[in-house]
Design a protein around this nucleic acid. Structure first.
Length: 273
DNA sequence: CGGTGGACCTGCTGGC
DNA sequence: TGCCAGCAGGTCCACC
């Protein structure tokens, strides 16, 4: 579900309400996430002060006092919302955190593909989840040359290369398809066949599309909600994703859907070559 | 090694 | 109405 723009939106929404707050208590309802939630999660969070909310790729990083970090991934269906404690508990509310502001932070995830762990700050970037990540699309070093160093030596389809978090960190299936649509490249194109110019255009389009999606507060395709449980609006701006059979926004052709591996890809057969 | 396909889960939708 | 197949925004691992 949530890709970089959705995670960024959630972080921005949580920041003013969480930073500086102290964690009073933690209730872990369901431990079986992608990685089993550590039995000591509650005791490690309890009493800590939340210093800062940040993000790396699709991981939410909550810096705590005592040089600890709470790292959360929302998988496909996860939500991290701030609510009044009187809000009725929902099925799949797996972790409930009470704050000294009188509010609660709830981690909700029906498919349980998400992850939650607390680590020492100096061990954070050695975690297997973060260690091999590629550059963030907003990193100053992310440009055409960087991306070309990956595309020129890969025979994979460009959609899959953009989904690979070791290439560039934060893109998922929705934005991979939207980015390629904007530069007129089919998702099925083999990376190696792309010219340096095309790769430059893709590299420039990545932060452009992600920034646009952040301005629209993310894409609520089905599950995604922000930190206040509100919908994003970028789904209305999508040009190809989930629009198979509908008319292209720039020409009369219907959008096509193909399977790459076992995931859908979408493109306009006239605009994308 | 790089690349692919399936597994992990629940919930929703569409076809019969 | 009910059942079942297929599909879903992510990641990881086994296998070729």
């Amino acid at each position: 579900m949530p890709e970089l723009p959705e995670i960024e939106t959630i972080c921005c929404g949580l920041k003013p309400h969480l930073e500086g707050r102290r964690i009073l208590s933690v209730n872990v309802v369901e431990r079986r996430l992608r990685c089993l939630v550590d039995r000591r999660l509650a005791e490690r969070l309890k009493g800590k002060t939340i210093l800062q909310i940040g993000r790396r790729a699709k991981y939410i990083l909550i810096s705590l006092s005592c040089d600890m970090v709470w790292m959360i991934h929302l998988g496909m269906s996860g939500k991290l919302i701030r609510v009044d404690p009187r809000t009725p508990k929902q099925k799949h509310d797996h972790i409930v955190v009470s704050l000294d502001s009188g509010q609660e932070l709830r981690y909700h995830d029906p498919r349980r593909f998400g992850l939650s762990l607390v680590v020492a700050e100096n061990e954070l970037h050695e975690l297997p989840q973060l260690k091999h990540l590629g550059l963030d699309p907003f990193d100053p070093g992310f440009n055409g040359s960087y991306l070309y160093s990956f595309t020129k030596q890969s025979d994979r389809r460009i959609r899959d290369l953009l989904l690979d978090q070791q290439t560039v960190a934060g893109i998922g299936n929705i934005y991979a398809n939207e980015i390629l649509c904007r530069v007129g490249v089919r998702p099925t194109t083999r990376s190696r066949r792309l010219t340096r110019t095309q790769v430059g255009e893709i590299a420039r389009m990545i932060p452009t599309v992600l920034n646009e999606a952040i301005r629209w507060c993310g894409t609520s395709f089905s599950d995604y909600r922000d930190a206040d449980d509100k919908f994003g609006e970028f789904q209305h701006q999508l040009r190809v994703y989930d629009r198979d059979g509908e008319k292209c926004r720039l020409c009369p052709s219907p959008i096509k859907r193909v399977a790459i591996g076992n995931r859908s890809a979408f493109y306009c057969p006239s605009c994308q070559k």
